[in-house]
Design a protein around this nucleic acid. Structure first.
Lengths: 129, 129, 129, 129
DNA sequence: GTGGTCTAGACCACC
DNA sequence: GTGGTCTAGACCACG
């Protein structure tokens, strides 16, 4: 699969799975109708407990991103892509705001902050391109 | 006092307190020798349990940022400022990396990401200046 | 398990637990990778509150002696044994120094002190050997 | 005065004062009828709070070691010396037992323990002689 | 008043 | 089942 778990992220593991599935859908990596990996397969791949994957999938179903296909597995819903695309920027912006607010509140010099952000942004742009 | 708790941050409350105290020290808001608010006072102010504040303070003591003054309270240590100043950039960078990595992995267009970051950065720079 | 709490020791209970776990690791009773008793189990066994055990375990984690294995328990870290072995003599020596300094300062006759120490040392050597 | 407070001893400060007064009496440094320093004076000397000294003196009075002399201060009682002399060895032995038991329980090699004790004992004997 | 410790009991995330 | 976090409330030592 195409994502990774950060065990020291602070964010709950199942939440990370939820976010990453949504991002995969938003980015067109997972398309409408496509099946997501089985609970067991994904659990093995990410080295996490199947229950955790299961919980993430349950959440994604209740968010309308996945739907169960009888006897086959869980598939991406028809309108998942547009929905996730919309959510995506907001989800990222929200976390970004948090980080910047914290930086601001730490009284880090504006110039230092800007250059820190610049360098990290450039770093992430160049990675794996 | 000068900081707030975000109950939906995901980050544990006591960890938020730890970070914010460190940031306050790094930013010179709390200076060496100065007393931090008493456990009970800060707990009341943030509307959290004294034990939670206490745990944060205990952590800060073991990190060498605070030291106990018998019967008087907890004071910022002499070398806390330089230490926190050093930690500060790393703490911010770490969270920044997380967010940007997630954004990247969401396959958000590089240009979109850059402009999103730019606008949020500018927003935070202008706020309260 | 293999240790006991002395409620009239003066030393905080959680500290006693910390010391005894370290001693157990130093003595090879607890080996790297091995799980320590669960918080609830040890609490029940020592007839103390689970939070007290938890606090001791948290301290041991921050000292690098234990590490959390998600959903499984707390395990002794790889380098805990050598670390605890090193600490052990210092911990014992520190308390020994205290006692002897107090004895000295009580103006107990040097000969009396020496024979007192001798007899207790012999006693402890013979016990359970 | 002739004693010192160890703030990191674990033992409560007022208890340290109690023990040291008793030791001073046992060692003949303070004799029957002699006045102990005033609460304020001793507090200043040891750099502790007068309330703490006061509490220690109260405890010593209830133990029959000190008695109040109207308008003059606190004096060592007539039978304090023999009483303290008797207590002294037991008090020291009790703490010694604790330390040795802990060492034993840490599985420190008997030879190592013995040589550790020897060296500390010799060290304390030579100091200030 | 201060911090330090302990208890009791709750809820959550994860296995 | 596991640890992690939080709350509530108690008692102690010290100033």
């Amino acid at each position: 699969m195409f994502f990774k778990i950060d065990f020291s992220d602070g964010l709950a593991i199942y939440q990370q799975v939820v976010r990453q599935i949504k991002f995969a859908v938003a980015g067109g990596v997972l398309k409408a109708g496509e099946l997501v990996p089985s609970v067991r397969e994904l659990a093995r791949e990410l080295a996490i407990n199947p229950n955790t994957v299961s919980r993430a999938y349950r959440e994604l179903q209740s968010h309308g991103v996945l739907e169960s296909v009888r006897g086959t597995g869980l598939a991406v819903t028809a309108d998942a892509e547009s929905q996730c695309r919309n959510e995506r920027v907001d989800m990222i912006r929200a976390r970004l705001k948090q980080v910047l607010a914290e930086a601001k509140q730490s009284r880090l010099d504006a110039g230092q902050l800007r250059s820190l952000v610049e360098s990290e942004l450039t770093a992430v742009e160049q990675r794996e391109e």
